[in-house]
């Protein structure tokens, strides 16, 4: 079944822009990225849109669909009624480059700040041995495709641009959790780093990051809250501090 659907697509650049109206053909089984490509091919050849795999694995086609951060390639058109006008805008947390393309370099800067995996000194490459049960928590976070939907929906930076210096965002807090929970990571200061450098205390766990994650990573429950609890161990819990001082508890 094919039908003509109405779309509002944000067109513009750093100097300004607006929502432009289009009517585009939609065919059965298509996703929104298919329609955007048809729009590009038939009516707006200069429409800028970032995409790559069309399979929800590269994280390139992040945008906001009817106000919700989504992957264009994973938004099925049959989730809309034919009469509905679908609005597509760029991510509203990052500076726009043009049309649906934004400058997400904020995320790359935050990624660079995280200390890399530190292997144990007494093991050479090839000697690492880990039980599956010990690494599976970290493996959940390795599913991240870096689409930055969690980063764009997080109100800490979305609604407060001035927090971008102090707050790393959900994607990099799961990276912190991934490394801190890793059975072979030798660093012992990742909880302190999460608090002091990544601003984990700014997260008020309202779970929007989890809601938009296309990989269904339990960002809040499995990464951020466990990291917050580890921060409590190191910084706020007097009994844990006392236990570590008198040798009852290993760090």
């Amino acid at each position: 079944m094919s039908y003509q659907a109405d779309f509002k697509v944000w067109r513009g650049d750093t100097d300004g822009g607006d929502l432009a109206d289009y009517t585009v053909e939609v065919n059965e089984g298509e996703v929104l990225l298919d329609v955007i490509h048809r729009l590009q091919a038939t009516q707006a050849p200069d429409l800028a849109v970032r995409w790559n795999c069309k399979a929800g694995k590269c994280g390139s086609c992040s945008a906001e669909v009817n106000g919700k951060p989504s992957l264009l390639c994973m938004t099925r058109m049959n989730t809309f009624v034919p009469e509905e006008t679908v609005t597509v805008t760029p991510l509203r947390t990052f500076p726009v480059v043009r049309d649906l393309v934004t400058d997400v370099s904020f995320n790359y800067k935050k990624a660079l700040q995280i200390p890399a995996f530190a292997p144990p000194k007494d093991l050479a490459p090839g000697e690492y041995r880990m039980a599956q049960v010990d690494v599976e928590r970290s493996q959940e976070f390795r599913k991240c495709i870096e689409c930055f939907l969690c980063q764009t929906v997080c109100h800490v930076v979305r609604d407060h641009d001035d927090n971008k210096t102090a707050f790393a965002g959900p994607r990099f807090l799961i990276r912190a959790a991934e490394l801190d929970m890793h059975p072979l990571d030798a660093r012992t200061d990742r909880a302190e780093f999460a608090r002091d450098e990544q601003g984990i205390g700014m997260c008020n766990i309202t779970k929007c990051c989890t809601e938009v994650c296309p990989e269904h990573i339990k960002i809040t429950d499995n990464a951020i809250i466990p990291m917050k609890e580890r921060v409590v161990d190191r910084k706020y819990d007097p009994l844990v501090w006392l236990g570590s001082k008198i040798g009852l508890r290993k760090s």
Binding site: D159, G201, N204
Partner: peptide, 30 residues
């Protein structure tokens, strides 16, 4: 209303999360 829903702006001009008193006391949950 911080935030009222995902991708819906909150009404507050500034935000410090759970880094200051009294909300830093949330760390006493255990």
């Amino acid at each position: 209303l911080s935030p009222p829903a995902c991708a819906v702006p909150e009404p507050h001009g500034t935000y410090t999360g759970e880094t200051r008193f009294p909300l830093i006391m949330q760390n006493a949950h255990r």
